[in-house]
Design a protein around this nucleic acid. Sequence first.
DNA 1: TTCAAAACCTGACATATGTCATAGTATTGC
DNA 2: GCAATACTATGACATATGTCAGGTTTTGAA
Lengths: 230, 230
Amino acid sequence: MEESRCENCIVRQFNSLRAMSKEELKQVSDSKTTKSIKKGEPLFQEGDKLNGVYCVRNGVSKLSKLSPNGKDQIVKLATKGEVMGQRSVIAEESTNLSAIAVSDMEVCFIPKDSINSTLHKNPNFTLEVLRHMAHDLKEADDVIVNMSQKTVKQRIAEAFLYLKNNFGEDDEGFLKLTLSREDIANVVGTATESAIRIISEFKKKGLIYTSGKRIRVADARKLQDMAEGF
Amino acid sequence: MEESRCENCIVRQFNSLRAMSKEELKQVSDSKTTKSIKKGEPLFQEGDKLNGVYCVRNGVSKLSKLSPNGKDQIVKLATKGEVMGQRSVIAEESTNLSAIAVSDMEVCFIPKDSINSTLHKNPNFTLEVLRHMAHDLKEADDVIVNMSQKTVKQRIAEAFLYLKNNFGEDDEGFLKLTLSREDIANVVGTATESAIRIISEFKKKGLIYTSGKRIRVADARKLQDMAEGF
DNA sequence: TTCAAAACCTGACATATGTCATAGTATTGC
DNA sequence: GCAATACTATGACATATGTCAGGTTTTGAA
């Protein structure tokens, strides 16, 4: 593990922890524990009471919710620098989402007491967390609109652009984050078969190119048009 | 207007303002203005920069977002005690939602400076706002799952139960909040015709009873079953 | 009260999407 | 290296939902 003190952790630059004072960070660092999670393993499950938050150092986790009909809806993909479980800790409720690693991960677990005491004492930190949450809520509203107003085809096109823009591409241009067809279906909220069919169609049309599980966005412009309904 | 000082306003009990100190409230009360909004009139429009937040004293407003295909998706119904526009003010961005009155309203407009200065000084207030937003975010996640996994029929059944539980019924058992079929369609994210068809079906099955525009939930149990997919 | 506009309703039809069945293909563990 | 397992793919079909077109009823303003 390269750097195990929060004070020096680069990841912190990207999240609310940057608004903490030196002393607060020290305290957090002393109380945190680091965990390695293998792809496919859960960090926590829907309904769990969380005793702290998880700060992602490396890898990606899906945050999903099981619907009554047995399907999993992926609500968010959390990556380096993001904090998971804050909502549950802040509202003091059990969590409404499950977190499962979609790639090997390294996360820091920060006990809720460290968070809560800072929330009560440091308005800047609280405000920073609030700003983050305001942003998440806005994104959630956008997702609601997309879900109800766009076709599956449009949502899948959007999903590929999202993966490209947020997780990047490797040297060969393939998406760094590889999701199974089932996960893609669960992100856009459709049946796995429907997702597969549409992905095949995109291949035929030259919008994407695949090699095994890996996917490359071949024509971002056309994908964008597709996402907008042309 | 019955009571025009925030310090004495009952509405405040239901929202984050209750965490303000006496002096802070006084300052808010001095800077606020009260407005009457007629049914159908907008409070603000998607894209507007908000110079403050709106605290609902009376009536109901729909918060909606226009989708690229021209349809309006209603994301939330705000009623007495709720504060609108906080997200935009907190994140210092223009708002992503439009607010339009669905019944005659009375609202207080609170300039953002009053809010912002308290956010920086009073951690309890900030934390209270944060808790509210955490709650909203959780609800938004639930809506996402419902949108993608439930049928229109299930969502409409849910919507009636929601209206009953959150806005109540009058002496005759009719829903206090009367929405047009179009608004109902926009809440559940479907075409107006589809909503009308399903409402007619519910009538025939005796799940609801209508008289003019007014709707009464006739069999809450069966509606609940319907919402859960039976 | 009257009339025009808005809201509601229904049918016919096209289309998007889900479901089930089946088979090929990659991965993994032993 | 092989079997078991998961993942990907495709066809056939059922169903849910959207769209268009035409009515009827309700509402609100002159």
